[in-house]
Design a protein around this nucleic acid. Structure first.
Length: 201
DNA sequence: CTCTTGATCTTCT
DNA sequence: GAAGATCAAGAGC
């Protein structure tokens, strides 16, 4: 019998339990793939995370590699906080700080599937196509309204809201995008087959 | 479809 | 003074 009706074109996944800050207090290489499928909202706008990259303090490509500076200071703080930086003078990029305080490791949020508040995202991005709204770290910050004002904020309190995924999705890994150091490390993670990635794997 | 380039500015050397 | 965890538009195929 047809107990599974054809899915709607845009289905809204059930949300798991809210993620606590302690979720981030472990290896950045464990947190990064575990964020695939989680839901990120900023003031109620966002969707399902489909692409991230891990940056470890021993990694030459990490902002924290050469020690603390005014820009990367929040990376050296406790886990479970946001780290937002300016990219190429134009865009914002959002990270989640991981591991014990002082580790200076973080996950870059690179792409998500727009689910909640799509009208607001389309307005901010000046675009209609869902695929282009959040398919890149700068794009998703624009769509979610993330700026430097959102840096160094706890991820388990407003305006942020994070929910665990339900079940375990198929995750793929590959080399990171747009970097010039440590280019061969396979620390980019994505939801297998997602149409909302910044680039295919 | 892929490749190239300009925009724009903060950060660190 | 140069580089950079990007993006969009335009040219070429």
């Amino acid at each position: 019998m047809a107990q599974n009706p054809k899915p709607a074109e845009t289905s809204v996944p059930r949300l798991g339990k809210p993620l606590k800050r302690s979720f981030f207090n472990r290896s950045v290489h464990d947190v990064a793939p575990d964020l695939i499928g989680a839901t990120l909202l900023v003031d109620g706008v966002g969707g399902t995370i489909v692409e991230v990259e891990a940056y470890h303090h021993t990694d030459p490509a990490a902002h924290s590699f050469n020690g603390p500076t005014p820009r990367n200071m929040v990376m050296f703080g406790p886990p479970g906080f946001s780290y937002v930086y300016r990219s190429y003078g134009i865009h914002w990029c959002a990270n989640f700080v991981c591991e014990a305080e002082g580790s200076a490791s973080a996950v870059l949020i690179r792409a998500l599937e727009p689910i909640h508040g799509c009208a607001a995202m389309r307005r901010r991005r000046g675009l209609q196509e869902a695929r282009a709204l959040c398919s890149g770290p700068g794009k998703l910050c624009e769509a979610l309204g993330i700026t430097i004002k959102h840096s160094a904020l706890p991820l388990d309190a407003q305006p942020f809201a994070l929910y665990a995924r339900i079940g375990k999705p198929d995750i793929v890994a590959g080399v990171r995008i747009g970097i010039t150091k440590a280019v061969d490390l396979p620390w980019r993670y994505g939801l297998k087959g997602s149409k909302f990635l910044s680039k295919p794997f």
